[in-house]
């Protein structure tokens, strides 16, 4: 008898190869209740393969895949999940309400059509044929289909691609609402600010491996890059040569310096230029952190 608590979704030592491409190269991943996990990474990193395994669409070559402690190919396991895939063309002649009604019929205790539409912000589209909607509206309908079964776990594969800023904000709000209800979400995204806005935990993937895992804060701390802006009489070339400076460039009127040791750098700047002004220190965004991580990985690979 197994007494240890089981996570909602789990990959353990999973490998998957397509021909010569090692899509996943020994992945461990585990998702807990009420958590929003973001999978970040460039194209070909293995995000979609990882999702495909958890949905039971493909079989792992090695390792263990579990969804609610079961094989994801078992329909009982999938009755607790909602799915939004990257490119699924839904029947264009069906109306939005009909699509929701059909998808909800697969689940034991679904939301009503009206409630699903309300949550996804498409109440005004229910009578429209799916084929007549704009790309952003279609994505929102797909989101309604993902949540209509009252799933405990949602898989959202690049959910906001093709949406304008307002629609994206609305979708984020709806996702936050679902997480606040106690549901879990696995999200893949290209948009770093999306992960930053939503995720409790971020997994950065590159070439079939997880190269960093933790909270958004932990990810930033691991990189620990800070940006220092200032107006100074010191030359760019001089400052760039300092050991405290990781990267230096001109940003408008000011110098912009990246550093892991902001305090040391600021002390030296102030010491060397008494007239220094317009000083500003900021933590790097996830974008910089992400670039930094994948670059380290590339260097390690090359070494």
């Amino acid at each position: 008898m197994q007494t240890a608590t089981i996570s909602l979704a789990r990959l353990q030592g999973v490998r998957k190869r397509y021909g010569k491409v090692q899509a996943l190269d020994g992945i461990d991943l585990s998702l807990h209740g009420g958590e929003l996990l973001a999978l970040l990474g460039p194209n070909g990193a293995g995000k979609t393969t990882a999702i495909g395994l958890l949905l039971g669409l493909i079989r792992a070559d090695a390792g263990e895949v579990a969804l609610f402690g079961m094989d994801p190919q078992r329909i009982e396991a999938r009755r607790h999940i909602g799915v939004m895939l990257q490119d699924a063309q839904l029947p264009t002649s069906l109306r939005v309400g009909e699509l929701i009604r059909l998808t909800a019929s697969y689940y034991p205790a679904p939301r009503s059509v009206a409630e699903s539409a309300e949550l996804a912000g498409i109440s005004d589209l229910l009578q429209r044929p799916y084929g007549k909607l704009s790309g952003g509206q279609q994505r929102r309908v797909q989101f309604a289909l993902a949540l209509c079964g009252r799933p405990k776990l949602l898989f959202l594969d690049e959910p906001t691609v093709g949406m304008d800023i307002e629609a994206r904000q609305k979708l984020w709000q709806a996702i936050r609402h679902l997480v606040a209800e106690g549901n879990s979400v696995v999200l893949t995204t290209h948009y770093l600010e999306e992960a930053e806005a939503l995720a409790n935990r971020v997994c950065v993937m590159a070439r079939g491996r997880i190269i960093s895992e933790g909270s958004v804060e932990a990810l930033r701390a691991r990189i620990a890059l800070k940006r220092v802006w200032c107006t100074t009489r010191l030359s760019l070339a001089d400052v760039a040569a300092w050991p405290e400076v990781a990267e230096a460039r001109i940003d408008g009127e000011r110098l912009c310096l990246s550093t892991e040791h902001a305090e040391l750098l600021v002390r030296r700047l102030l010491a060397e230029d008494v007239g220094l002004s317009a000083l500003e220190v900021r933590a790097a965004g996830l974008a910089e952190a992400f670039t930094e991580l994948t670059r380290d990985d590339t260097l390690a690979e090359a070494a």
Binding site: M1, Q2, T3, A4, T5, I6, S7, L8, H32, G33, G34, F68, G69, E76, R79, H80, S105, Y106, Y107, P108, A109, K152, G182, N183
Partner: peptide, 27 residues
Amino acid sequence: MNTHIDLSILSERPQVAPMPRARVFNA
């Protein structure tokens, strides 16, 4: 199934909702 699934946060809901036969037929 004697595995224990940690869904404590969802305790108000049944842990594994069964699919009644009528709902399968409806699908």
